[in-house]
């Protein structure tokens, strides 16, 4: 009696296991495919650009006159291309100006958006709304909200800022 069932048990169980394995493989492949497509990679790149852009803009709009050298080094670290060479070329003048200004400027990005991303060429543009509080030595801090646009370029060490400036009224 038991032998008949037993004879069938093994093949049936084996078929079940094979079918289940096939299903698991199919589901795994479809998950992998859904989460590693070009679109997902592009979306990830966009998020990375946005993150770097936000951090970079906050960096460049934050400065402590007592730590000018440290801040300028940080600017150099996060920039490349024209922006970097601009900082490098007039570093001494700039450092003196910033130290003389005797202000502590702190910024945070309220919102930012990637407006362009060419992930092949490694170029992108980010716009950001930045809240800056400027504190003169011994004075009251003043808050203001500005809008910035930055260009990013992909380097061997990741995305870096290659241009940065405020978006002035009148389309400047």
């Amino acid at each position: 009696m038991g032998t008949g069932v037993r004879r069938w048990a093994l093949p049936v169980a084996a078929v079940l296991a094979v079918l289940a394995a096939g299903y698991a493989v199919w589901a795994g492949v479809s998950w992998w495919g859904a989460s590693s497509s070009d679109s997902v990679a592009y979306a990830r790149e966009r998020d990375e650009v946005l993150r770097v852009g936000q951090v970079g803009i906050a960096n460049f709009t934050t400065l402590d006159y007592r730590e000018v050298d440290r801040d300028l080094d940080r600017w150099l670290d996060t920039s490349t291309g024209a922006l970097r060479s601009e900082i490098e070329s007039d570093r001494a003048v700039r450092a003196k100006q910033l130290a003389d200004a005797r202000t502590v400027t702190e910024s945070r990005v309220l919102d930012a958006a990637v407006t362009e991303l060419d992930d092949r060429a490694g170029r992108a543009r980010v716009i950001a709304v930045v809240e800056t509080s400027v504190m003169p030595e011994g004075g009251q801090s003043v808050k203001k909200v500005d809008r910035y646009q930055t260009e990013l370029t992909r380097t061997d060490a990741g995305w870096k800022l290659s241009a940065l400036g405020p978006v002035r009224a009148g389309g400047a």
Binding site: L19, A20, Y23
Partner: peptide
């Protein structure tokens, strides 16, 4: 098989 179905 049950484990594989769960995983799938």
């Amino acid at each position: 098989a049950a484990l594989l179905v769960g995983l799938g």
